[in-house]
Design a protein around this nucleic acid. Structure first.
Lengths: 168, 168
DNA sequence: CAAGATTGACAAATCAATCTTG
DNA sequence: CAAGATTGATTTGTCAATCTTG
């Protein structure tokens, strides 16, 4: 029911909803398919070939990109679009597998540092090529450089609106 | 680690991975942010204002769009990008809340029909305006009609590649 | 006491069997 | 026996407390 005027209940005083035009609807549904299927497609390749979830990969990738392979839990949560709670559970699992370890920040005991182990670094290195190839195959190679750039821009515009979230 | 050449382990004979250029990487990361945050933004509005999950909404919307408010489980699963198992669990919950009911196809007992109840139709009708307004605010109004159309096309191109899935 | 982090209870999705019908 | 569907066990994510440190 993003769709039509609908014959269903309407409690609003004046029904002033701006329904989607057929063209808008069609574009929206395409976007819905994208946001539902792309994460799944990325996830399953990663899981199948490397036994890593997409968020696990992301977390390790962010860590590996720092000098000391170290980040605060809070920073890591932010940069991976993850809640602190989710991240904590996830780091528990990675820690159990020896891919990451924790350490209390010696400068300020309120912070916990997540650190990529050597084992974690190899796991990431082993996973990367097939993952990148998959991203290239599914997304990068699907569009001209120009359209890819624009897609990225459009995605950013939408994300900025989500961040602006006046909550309704 | 979609990022760089990396100093990590590499077991491939000749390391012939085509890493992403900075521009490609930037676009890709924007897409990642989109597919992670947009579903969340849609879901939370829906949940907050109507107590419906995004998949629940989708399922009911698909049903309401048919003449008899009826669809086969298998068809519904396909059209909502959902596994049959996931859908079955979900319909259980909706059935428990009286929004949908099940019925065995009288023509062919192998099929189960999911049917939107009157109560379900009103719930959907009540949820729709705010949901559509949210989609408009976050996505439709973020882009020019021309760019929206292109975004939809690009999304479709990517989805088609996912469907083509040569599985690696 | 506020920010960072963790924890356990709960909800939802996935996976692997299993069941049923034509 | 293949396709449709369901089920229960497991995993993963969310939510609401709780704990700790400066």
């Amino acid at each position: 029911m993003t769709r039509s005027r609908s014959s269903a209940a309407r409690s609003v005083p004046s029904d002033d909803v701006q329904w989607l035009t057929p063209s808008e609807l069609s574009s929206w549904l395409s976007v819905v398919r994208l946001v539902q299927r792309l994460p799944w497609a990325i996830e399953s390749q990663l899981q199948r070939d490397s036994g890593l979830g997409i968020t696990e990969y992301q977390v390790m990738a962010m860590l590996s990109d720092t000098d000391s392979a170290t980040m605060r839990m809070s920073g890591l949560a932010e940069v991976t679009n993850s809640s602190l709670s989710r991240l904590s559970h996830l780091i528990n699992r990675l820690e159990g597998r020896g891919l990451v370890r924790r350490e209390i920040d010696s400068q300020d005991g309120r912070f916990t540092l997540a650190i990529l182990t050597e084992e974690g670094r190899s796991a990431l290195g082993a996973a990367a090529p097939a993952h990148v190839a998959n991203v290239r195959r599914l997304v990068i190679d699907a569009l001209s450089p120009e359209r890819l750039r624009r897609l990225g821009q459009d995605a950013e515009r939408i994300v900025r609106r989500i961040d602006r979230e006046p909550l309704r």
